[in-house]
Structures are given as C-alpha cells and as structure tokens.
C-alpha cells in the first residue's frame, strides 16, 4: 500500500464529539494540511468521534461554524480512507446511513490491528 519511498502511513484518530471541545475541528484542519504532503492518510472515528460524521448537523443556534460539510470535501483531497468503529455506531444507535460520507465500518479489533500498522498516529 504505502511502499513508495518517503510515503508514511498517517492515521488521525478521532474520539470526540464535534462541538463540546475543539478537538474535532482541529483534527480536520490538520488533516487538510497533511493532505498537501502526499502521504498515506487515513481517519479513524472511535467512541464519540462517530458523532462528527452525523448527518443533519445545524449549528446556527449555537453560533458555531458547522464544519460537518467539510468531511465531504476530503475525497477531493484524495483522502478516501475513513474508518468507523462498529461498536461505537451501535452503542449510539447509528448506522452507516446516518453518516454524511462513505466509510468503512470496522470492529474494534480490526481497528486496533490497523493502528498497529501505522507510521504516525495523531490523536484527537
């Protein structure tokens, strides 16, 4: 997969809901910047991180920027590997249909294995 020289596997691990803290937005900004460096980038959404991808976010009432549409721009940045924790979705009453982008749903064990294969992990 990332056998080309100079290309490293970067995984962004998102575990926070979008507006309660600034983690989700910060992660997204770093992801977009990283995309400029042509690395092998993937995003993983675990625990409350899956809420970041929830459809139908409307932030007018809390006077905060709604950055959820930006996840749909990732494809244009050639970031196509989005992994979502199966157990986290189930625990929160969500299915893939509730998410605003196409993702790969993996169970925790598979995510753990994938994490072990990375060169760089950025935790949010």
């Amino acid at each position: 997969m990332s056998e080309e020289p100079g290309i490293k596997k970067f995984m962004f691990v998102n575990r926070k809901a979008p507006y309660g803290t600034v983690y989700a937005l910060e992660a997204l900004e770093v992801v977009l910047i990283t995309a400029a460096f042509d690395q092998d980038v993937s995003l993983a959404f675990l625990d409350d991180g899956v809420f970041q991808l929830r459809k139908g976010q409307q932030t007018k009432g809390i006077e905060t920027k709604n950055f959820s549409p930006t996840y749909r721009a990732l494809e244009g940045y050639d970031i196509e590997k989005l992994y979502v924790e199966k157990e986290a979705l189930a625990a929160r009453g969500l299915t893939e249909d509730d998410l605003l982008v196409d993702v790969t749903v993996l169970d925790r064990k598979a995510l753990g294995v994938l994490m072990d294969e990375q060169d760089v992990i950025l935790s949010f």
Binding site: R15, L46, D47, E85, E87, R108, K109, L111, G112, V113, M115, D116
Partner: peptide
C-alpha cells in the same frame, strides 16, 4: 472516562 476502556478494547 471511557478512555482506558476504549484503549484496551481496541488495542491488541
């Protein structure tokens, strides 16, 4: 917090 829980459930 669930952090430790999540960690040990995900990581082998």
């Amino acid at each position: 917090s669930q952090a430790l829980d999540s960690c040990v459930q995900v990581a082998p």
